[in-house]
Design a protein around this nucleic acid. Structure first.
Lengths: 189, 189
DNA sequence: CACATGATGTCGCGCCGTGACATCACGCTA
DNA sequence: TAGCGTGATGTCACGGCGCGACATCATGTG
């Protein structure tokens, strides 16, 4: 029998998610989260750098996975296409299931502090994408633009996908947005 | 003679900027900022909701100004063009001068906490743009995409503009990025 | 059986941000 | 001129966040 229960990090994540949904992010203290997970406050901060980050524990793996896809993509002659394709083909259903993602998204959207963290995580991904594209020979300015626009386009699609019924097709949504983008990018300019 | 010096907010802003540049954002406490501005800590929080926001005091005016431009734009048949054009024509030199903006940008870029705040301010602008475009009859999904992509494109250009010599032309840079975007948006898809 | 390991607890601290109340120069009005 | 309201600031107390330092103790390893 171990001296303590196993899986403190998982219990903390679950406790935090529950409390954030029950009483909101601001009205939940780290002390409460830790108590529900049956550990001390200090232990919380050993697993997560701050209160917000408990909702973003998987983001490093996500970023690494996406970057690997870009790095291994067959061709990057059209970097925007490469990025959106790589992100679309990612196995999002492995991120805890649709409803888990919906709940997480709802909590984030309801709290500016969490939204800030979400945005910078996306920005981190964009920065890494930019670097990989440049390594693969894409013009620096084009790489940065493609990374940023690609991320915006994809996560816009991702939101719609989460909001849609379970049988919605993510690829179809990204494809639709790509068409819309093509229709509003000034062709002649 | 007033009981206190006038312009506490301005003194706080300047003191904060000085200290952030001298010793960094994290190593500067609100107590120090307030002391240099010759007020108490409590007064700091009467002018700014939190420590980060002291660098974003002008952002509300910026957002309002940009939104007004979108609202008054002659035509929105190409929302992406409308947005980028409106932002490009904004009087950025009125925001305190190039060097002030460069210093501000440098401080923000050096601190993730400030970058988070910067990103959510951009996001706020995107949300408002989306609303205005929809009011003006743009399809909801297209409006959101155009707002987000337009903001990314413009601020990417803005960064380059700040990094460039003083005689650089912002419109030329945004135009260049628009061309690059046109070249990587899959035409046939 | 002794010891290193590693996760957790305990304690103290500085900083952030806020509510409540006090202070007091200024301007207005009788 | 005396009085009064206003508004910016100060003062105080407090809860929450996040971290450094050290103690505790089950496990497993020799």
């Amino acid at each position: 029998m171990p001296r303590w229960e196993l899986g403190s990090a998982d219990r903390l994540k679950q406790a935090a998610m529950e409390l954030f949904r029950e009483k909101g992010f601001e009205d939940t203290s780290v002390v409460e989260i830790a108590a529900r997970a049956r550990v001390t406050t200090r232990t919380f901060f050993r697993y997560f750098p701050d209160k917000r980050d408990v909702l973003f524990a998987e983001s490093e793996g996500l970023r690494a996975g996406l970057v690997a896809r870009i790095r291994q993509a067959e061709d990057v002659t059209n970097p925007l296409h490469t990025i959106v394709r790589a992100m679309t083909e990612f196995d999002w259903d492995a991120m805890g299931g649709r409803d888990v993602q919906r709940h997480r998204q709802a909590v984030i959207a309801a709290n500016p502090e969490l939204l800030e963290r979400d945005l910078i995580k996306h920005d981190d991904i964009a920065v890494e994408f930019t670097g990989v594209l440049r390594e693969r020979g894409v013009d620096p300015d084009t790489a940065r633009l493609a990374a940023r626009v690609g991320i915006q386009l994809f996560f816009t699609a991702y939101e719609s996908w989460l909001a849609a019924p379970d049988d919605a097709d993510l690829a179809a949504i990204t494809g639709d947005l790509m068409s819309r983008l093509a229709s509003i990018v000034p062709i002649g300019a």
